[in-house]
Design a protein around this nucleic acid. Structure first.
Ligand SMILES: NC(=O)c1ccc[n+]([C@@H]2O[C@H](COP(=O)([O-])OP(=O)(O)OC[C@H]3O[C@@H](n4cnc5c(N)ncnc54)[C@H](O)[C@@H]3O)[C@@H](O)[C@H]2O)c1
Ligand SMILES: NC(=O)c1ccc[n+]([C@@H]2O[C@H](COP(=O)([O-])OP(=O)(O)OC[C@H]3O[C@@H](n4cnc5c(N)ncnc54)[C@H](O)[C@@H]3O)[C@@H](O)[C@H]2O)c1
Lengths: 205, 205
DNA sequence: GATGCCATGTGAAATAATTCACAATGTTAA
DNA sequence: TTAACATTGTGAATTATTTCACATGGCATC
């Protein structure tokens, strides 16, 4: 099985390649992509090996073909719907950002338990009360969730998502979730990130 | 040298331990902390070995002592000032969040190149024009930066930070920065994170 | 049409991270 | 007092990830 680090890099490659493609660039060598992505050429080649795309030793990788290969590998055939739980500061920022960005992943519904936030439309996304979560998720075939509720609500909200059939969660709350093993959870721990920066900026890596 | 993954976990341990301390808990065993933090007992013990704190085989780790040990290890003696560049949706969410949260890391100034955003005070933080960045950072002895500008502005803004003496950057822009090796950069790539979730939720890990 | 050049793809080696497993230790209970 | 017990700290083993290094092959140049 491919590592999650590799998937993150491949996702980054795609984004960078799409930019290059827009600028009219047609092909790229592993060491150039590595320089742009901040890795090594060997690592780029290994990652691309995993997705089963072959470049040519003389031209390198043909950018539009490679982007397509990455998409075949990463994306689901049909697009996947995403729910966002917790329409606070961070949740709204994420809503604004993801709107019309990745065609393959679409935030189709947002939830909060604060009455002031439900029944509004924020950045084109309808907001519901968490009480309606299971119903709305099943209506929209949602299998992915982004969790941006406060720490105290995170575990409960995550369980609601799982009960509603969600298979993967991107968790921004600063606590680990206890969920069945089969649910894939990715934690984004910004507090740890800034502390890492403070530590290594001081001590050197 | 200690790994950056270990630092992230240690930062998480501290947060969890502080919560437990508030709830009145006095001591904890490695396997209990592991269960809460979502890791293995052996890993907890290894991590704590790195910071030089020893528990007792019968009581486990004394929580307030351990928190102090972690802080001695992670934190700078004096608190460290942080600058935030890019007062957009994400920047404001981060400002709101970090205000009065970590006493040791304080966002003391925010910057943007949009005239509408400068000279305001957002969540208690004064906003300046990026033209004044170097001056303000040196006046406030800022060595850390959080970068939340749009992708197109990220490289330039990062260079401004480095010129102003910043040693570590937490980068939310979706492109890798090209900076001198000695600058520590931590990238938070939310797009890659959600694509990871989509991938592994579908394929299984 | 040979030759040199350069980049790919990939086994193998190296390095990094995690887990195993157990001696050492202090506590409790008989 | 002593035996049984649970947990720590840590060398060693294991597993994961990255890097090395080179055979292979296409293309330009002579
Ligand atoms: N904003 C940041 O920069 C930042 C940084 C690090 C971590 N986080 C974490 O991200 C999460 C969100 O942060 P934020 O700044 O947006 O917080 P916030 O307080 O602005 O928003 C939290 C939202 O969650 C809602 N909520 C709380 N409990 C809920 C529940 N059980 N069900 C449904 N909705 C619920 C609240 O009504 C609120 O709208 C928090 O867990 C926070 O710790 C945020
Ligand atoms: N919001 C999210 O959920 C999210 C998710 C993933 C990545 N990001 C990334 O985080 C960054 C910020 O996202 P956002 O949603 O806050 O965007 P935003 O457009 O709301 O804010 C960007 C801010 O940066 C400022 N800016 C642009 N160029 C600048 C420069 N050279 N100097 C100073 N200020 C400058 C703009 O004036 C604006 O205020 C972007 O790079 C985005 O790609 C955001």
């Amino acid at each position: 099985m491919i590592s999650d680090k590799a998937i993150a890099r491949i996702s980054l490659y795609r984004r960078l390649l799409m930019d290059l493609h827009k600028e009219g660039r047609e092909a790229i060598f592993s060491h150039d992509l590595a320089a742009i992505a901040g890795g090594s050429a060997a690592q780029v080649r290994r990652d691309l090996m995993a997705i089963g795309y072959s470049g040519s030793p003389t031209k390198g990788y043909i950018i539009d073909e490679l982007v397509r290969s990455i998409s075949d590998f990463l994306d689901c055939a049909r697009h996947q719907n995403v729910a966002l739980i917790g329409i606070g500061n961070l949740g709204r920022a994420i809503l604004a950002y993801f709107t019309n960005r990745r065609p393959n992943l679409k935030i189709v519904a947002a939830f909060d338990n604060d009455e002031h936030k439900v029944n509004r439309v924020i950045h084109g996304c309808r907001c519901y009360h968490t009480d309606d979560l299971e119903k709305i998720l099943q209506e929209n075939d949602v299998k992915l969730g982004i969790l941006t509720v406060s720490a105290s609500g995170a575990q409960g909200a995550a369980e609601k998502l799982v009960d509603a059939g969600v298979k993967g969660i991107l968790n921004f709350a600063p606590i680990p979730l206890k969920l069945p093993r089969k649910i894939y959870v990715e934690n984004v721990d910004m507090s740890a990130s800034i502390e890492k920066v403070a530590f290594f900026a001081r001590k050197g890596k």
